[in-house]
Structure formats: C-alpha cells, structure tokens
Nucleic acid binder design. Structure first.
Lengths: 236, 236
DNA sequence: GAAACCCTTCGGTGGACGCCGAAACGTCCG
DNA sequence: CGGACGTTTCGGCGTCCACCGAAGGGTTTC
C-alpha cells in the first residue's frame, strides 16, 4: 500500500497571496532578489523575507546569496511542472506550456548586474577574454598585461579601475548562464564604456539591455561572439 | 503575457492535516461518505463537513448525495495527476503511478451498498434483469410479473419485499460503474439471498464481497454475466 | 408518526500566522 | 573607518480558521 503523502507543507506554502505572487514571478525561471519580490507583492521587506523562508523550507524555492543580495528561484523543473498542473485546477483556462517569458529572454541575453555586464553578453565577453589571455584564472579573473592593453584600446578606463578601492576584478556568478562573468571595478568600467560607446542601450525598464547593431558587430568581429537576436532566440 | 495563477485556493485546501488525509483516502478513486472520512482523519463529523466544503469549493472534490449519505470523491483524473506531481515535491520518494488500490478493485468488483448488491456484480445483474424483462424502466426498475416469478425461483423473498413498508424497488447510482443498480426492499432481499445461498461471501473487512465459484457459475450460466477475477482485473 | 441515522449549520473558543516597524547583520563603496 | 544598502530577525498586534458540541434538516426503517 502506498504511503500517504503529506500535502500540508506544500499546501501551506501556496496558501497566501504574497507567496502566490512570488511563485508566479519565478515561474519563468528567473532569479530575483528578495526586495524586488517584496515590492512586486506589495508587502514589506521583512514580510517577504518570512514568506521566502517558508517557500525554501517547503522545497519550492532555492536561495543564492550574491554580495549583499539574495536571489531566489524555483527549486527545479519539477516544481514548475507541479505548479503548472496545479494551475490547471486553479483556473479552467488552458495551459500554456512552461517557458521563459519574453522579458526573461531579454534579460538572459544582456543586462546589467548592478554596474557590470551580465547575461549571455557578459559571460560571452568573459569567456572570450579568458581564451585570448586578457583575463587569467577561472575564479579570480585577474587582469593580464595584454588585457590591460586591449581594454585600454577599447576605451575602457583601466587605470581608474586598477586604482579604485574596490577589487579590480571579481567573478560574479550569472544566474541565467550559470557561469561566471567579470565584475568588480573593471567590470564596472567595461559596462560604463559599453554604454558610453553606444554598444548597448538600457532597455525600457529595469536592468535589461539592448545590444545595438554596432555593439553586435563589435563583439562578432573582435571576439567571434555571435549574439542571437533576443526576439528570435531559441528557448529551452 | 500569461495571466497569473492564483494558487491560494488550492494551496489552502491542501494546507491542513485532516484535508490531506481525506485526499489521500480518495486518491485511489473511491467515493466515501463523510462519516468514514471523519473517523479516518480523527476529527468530528462537523469539522469534517467543513473541511469537505473547502475541498469542494476548491474544485478538488465532488459530492454526491445518496439517501442519507453523502459520498465524496476526487473531482477528476486531472486532480489526481496534480496531487501526484505535488506528492513528488512532498516526499523525495519515487512516484508510484496513479491507479486503483487493490482494495478499491475488490470493491469495484462486488460489494454491499448497505443491504443490496453493488459494483460490477450489482450493475451487471440489474442490466441483465432489465434486458430479460424482469425489471422495467431505466430509473424506476419496477418489478415485472416475469421478474417476480424468476426471482422467486431463485429463492428471493419477493413477497416480503413487495409488502415491506419501504419502496419495493429503487435505482441506486453506482459510484464505480456510474450506472444504476437495484436497491430498495427487493434489492435487499436479493442481497440477502445471495449471501444465504453462498453465492457471495463478505470480504474480511467492510463492504467488500467475494463472489464464490458457485456464484460465478450461476451468473454466467443464467444471465451470461462474466465477472473478472478481482486479482486479475485489468485496471484503468 | 416515531425513532434512528447521516450530515450540515451555527456559536464560541483557542491557537496559528500574516503583517508591520525597529533593530541587527553583512556587504559594498568612498 | 563611516555611510549606504539589502536582507534577516525580533516583538507585538490583529485576524483568520480549525476545532468542538449542540441544534436543525433530510432520509430510511419500523
């Protein structure tokens, strides 16, 4: 005889409006900091924090600390699938398959992680610069002499980044690509240069970035980095 | 953009131990009266009633009134599937596919619905007797003269059933077969005769019945009713 | 009609929990 | 180091709700 399942933990996790909003926001596969979830649900930061621990304890959501931020995401595909099937019960509306939202796709392509480039653009550039010897090491991403020269030619304020108080380079784990990308003072300088040179422009809302034609051309010609058009990107 | 789903209603429905027990009991596809569910969960009848209305309002469970009983069952296969996928989250144990339990299969084959035969045996006999002209009408199941003769020959106390205060015949909707079977005073008399003649025996626990070899032979030879061996019955 | 039975509805009570602001903790920046 | 920032923890408050017993409605049986 099959052992009984205890639905109470998962059920309780789903039973409040704020947590329902959280899960809906995370259903597209994105990771989001606690504060963003709090404002989206219209609750205070402290309340959101409590809700999030409930979701984590229930196994629906995972947390990852990054600097002074804490990113929350669905625990896995099976969670998304379960919520999907539950959604069928919630409203009689037909199911739309689980997939990244259009906005999530934009963010996955290119975005600002605070002051440095992230997404496929950020990880792609980092990979290319490691391959070409501009950056050394997998985790440290130390700036080499060749890298200093190359980036200076690009117009990046390398000297300012080196003399800054904050660490020159830092590896920041990308939550869509699951690989590190360049952060720290140098990462910030690179991001500033990309914006100033018009290689990327801020997307209408939030952290998203549009890679301009000139930027797309630059990264392809210089580092062989081929960025897929967001709108046409193959998902999943 | 996909409209947000509201998980709160379903979530709240799952969030208490008593309701979790109810759903586990109903997961095998059986229908059960409110009282049975109440004692199984260890709560009072009134509390159970409130829980059940919550489950019905959430769309997880349906209620069907039968006489002075009220049978509750899962609302459908999709509900079972959703609970199944949720169960994966609840415990890490691997899933055993959704299917009728062995006990449920026994009950579906033959059982007592209070004092009259139900399950495939009950509906099969009723169908056969309607076909052969012993009973008339789809809903009333009135006893014909030929039926009185035939049943009397079987040893059924037809006269006692006709003169009883309660209605001679009544159609009782079968919850496994979803078709009517014979109830009322005559149904009771038939059930009594089947037990006395040794055509069926009470299963060890509760309402379940075992059809004996003599009973199996009788129904096949007399009415062409072929009952599948419970243990070998194909499910689903 | 009367009694037995099943179930639901109705009050009332106690505990659980969602909510917030204040304070503490850790990180980043100059 | 000092200030800003994101997040969590802590106390306290108000509400919701799970629970029960008693009462009421409906059905079956005698």
């Amino acid at each position: 005889m099959a052992r009984d399942r205890d639905f109470t933990v998962v059920g309780r996790a789903l039973s409040t409006p704020a947590r329902s909003v959280f899960l809906n926001l995370l259903l597209d596969g994105t990771s989001r900091p606690a504060g963003e979830l709090a404002t989206a649900a219209g609750v205070s930061a402290s309340t959101a924090s409590e809700h999030l621990t409930v979701l984590v304890d229930a196994g629906l959501v995972t947390a990852r600390t990054q600097g002074r931020h804490r990113y929350y995401a669905l625990a896995g595909q099976d969670v998304a699938a379960a919520l999907e099937s539950l959604g069928v019960l919630a409203d009689a509306a037909p199911v739309s398959g689980y997939r990244r939202s259009r906005r999530a796709e934009y963010l996955a392509a290119a975005r600002f992680c605070y002051d440095h480039l992230a997404g496929r653009l950020g990880t792609g550039l980092t990979d290319a610069w490691v391959r070409s010897g501009w950056l050394a090491g997998r985790d440290e991403l130390a700036l080499t002499d060749a890298g200093a020269v190359g980036l200076r030619e690009l117009g990046v304020d390398v000297d300012g980044a080196v003399t800054a108080r904050r660490p020159t380079t830092r590896a920041c784990l990308d939550w869509t690509e699951r690989r590190p990308h360049l952060a720290g003072a140098l990462g910030s300088a690179v991001g500033t240069r990309f914006l100033d040179a018009g290689w990327v422009t801020r997307h209408r809302s939030g952290r998203g970035l549009d890679v301009t034609d000139s930027g797309r051309l630059l990264v392809r010609e210089t580092w062989g980095l081929d960025l897929v058009e967001p709108g046409r990107a193959r998902v999943r």
